[in-house]
Structures are given as structure tokens and as C-alpha cells.
Nucleic acid binder design. Structure first.
Lengths: 127, 127
DNA sequence: GGTTGACCTGGAGTGCACTCCAGCTCCTAC
DNA sequence: GTAGGAGCTGGAGTGCACTCCAGGTCAACC
């Protein structure tokens, strides 16, 4: 299967402009072109794009994704380095989740506080 | 207790520049000044700063924090609206955590994949 | 009384990740 | 054969959240 840029955008969740931007900065390899010079994305291209969106979602900076892309480009010899990157990134995602979780606790506490105020207020009115 | 801007920065985890910036954009009330015209933060100022850093950590945009700050400024009458904001924000934080968790799963999968490659490689060598 | 260090102000600059635009080409459908 | 729509390029613009800077003040210590 091949996909137009619009289809690739829809399937990856990136915008058309972002796809071209990623190509420009070397985050994705230039896809094939059709007879009219238009980009034609393959399934492989697509799965790379989808993977990139995962990395992006987890907050990996573009510069690091690009580093990963470059290693990937150099083939199997860099697999260890790539694994290492994912390893470290996984740790940072876990930390991030823990951090969010702890802020969530504060939020819960604060909301409970507001609920208590409301409760007090209602009591005051009905008393 | 009162705190110099350097102390407030250290205790809140924000930079000195960020403290002044937050004041400029109306995210924090201008703190008291000492005899020399220097900022003198109170414990209340500090706890607001700390709370702001929680909101920031959870990804609340400054514009929303400012909205919250303005409501807070208008007193108890806005408590319901503020609670509502925290409520909605809590939902978005939960979603964010779920999203991170699901990307984490992909990461695990990918790392396992690299480990399998390594394993195969070792087998190939020792075979 | 001079130097040092923390702090002050207004304003400019930075880094990131897009996003938009003008002006063009190409294919398709009428 | 022409109108419309998708896509093309290079480059400019945007929004966010800071971060830095020059030039100045102030209090304290030597």
C-alpha cells in the first residue's frame, strides 16, 4: 500500500505541514514520489511515523528523535545504541508518570478542600 | 517568615527570572517590598508559588493558571468555578497519564524487540 | 568611601515545534 | 480546454514559556 500525504497525515495523526517539516529536518526519509512528483508513503514509512508520534507523545525532543533516526539509518550495528536510548527514555517516561501522579494527588487534595468548603457553606445556609 | 527572591526561587523551584516574569504577567500578586525596594515573599506567596509549579508540572498552560489566579483574587464567590477548573484539569491529567502509560507499553515492546535481536545475535555467534 | 553582591527595571532575545503563505505544477472531471 | 483540488517549494510567521541583558540602586563590609 502507498499513501498520499493527506492519508499519511490522517493515519499518523500528524499534520501535512508537520510531515513535510519532519522530512526537511531529517526525521523521516524522503518518501517515494509518484509520477506527478507527489509524495507516496509506504507502509514502512507509515509505521515509522506512528512510532515517532509515540516518542513525541512521551515528550522526546525532536533532536533526540533525529539522533535515533540517524542511528537507525546506519543499520543493525547501531541497534545497541538505539536500545540504550529507548531504555533511558523509558526511565524518563516512568519518572514523568510518577511526577504526574504525585501532582494528581495534590489536585485531589485541593478538590477535596473545595468540596469541604461547599459542604460547610450548605450547612451554613440550611442551619 | 519572609523570603528574598533568591530564597523564593530556591523553595519554589522556579528561577528568579521566572518569578519576576510570573509577576509581570499577573500570575502572582506583587509581593511586599523591603526597605530597600526588594521583593519580600510571605509564606502565603510561597505556597501559591508551589501550587503553581504543580499546575505547571501537570501541563496547565499559563493562560489557564492566570484565569485561576484571577478567580482566586475575586474571593470565595468564585470557589465553584475554581473547583470546576481543577476538576477538568484533573481529568486531563488522568488522560495524559493513561496516554503516557500506553506509549510506555509500546516502548517496552520495542525494547523487548531489541533484546530479542541481541539474543539472536549472541546465539548466532556462539552457534 | 570604595568595592562587592544581591536585587531592581524595561526590553530584547531564545529555543522549540510547528504552521502558514505565495506562487507554482499537475491531474481529473466536466 | 478550463476549472478545481491536491500537492509542491522556500521561506516567513506564530505561540509558548521563559531567559538574558544593560544599566542602575542599595546595604554591608573592609
Amino acid at each position: 500500500m502507498t499513501y498520499s500525504i493527506a492519508q499519511a497525515a490522517e493515519r499518523s495523526g500528524l499534520s501535512i505541514d508537520t510531515l513535510r517539516y519532519y522530512e526537511r529536518i531529517g526525521l523521516v526519509d524522503p518518501p517515494a514520489r509518484d509520477s506527478g512528483g507527489r509524495r507516496s508513503y509506504s507502509d514502512d514509512d507509515l509505521s515509522w511515523l506512528v512510532f515517532l508520534t509515540r516518542l513525541r507523545t512521551t515528550g522526546m525532543p525532536i533532536r533526540m528523535m533525529r539522533e535515533y533516526a540517524q542511528l537507525r539509518h546506519r543499520g543493525a550495528a547501531t541497534a545497541g545504541r538505539r536500545k540504550q536510548m529507548l531504555f533511558e527514555h523509558r526511565a524518563s517516561v516512568r519518572e514523568r508518570i510518577a511526577e504526574l501522579q504525585s501532582c494528581l494527588d495534590v489536585l485531589e487534595y485541593k478538590i477535596a478542600h473545595y468540596e469541604q468548603i461547599e459542604h460547610t457553606f450548605v450547612e451554613g445556609v440550611t442551619a
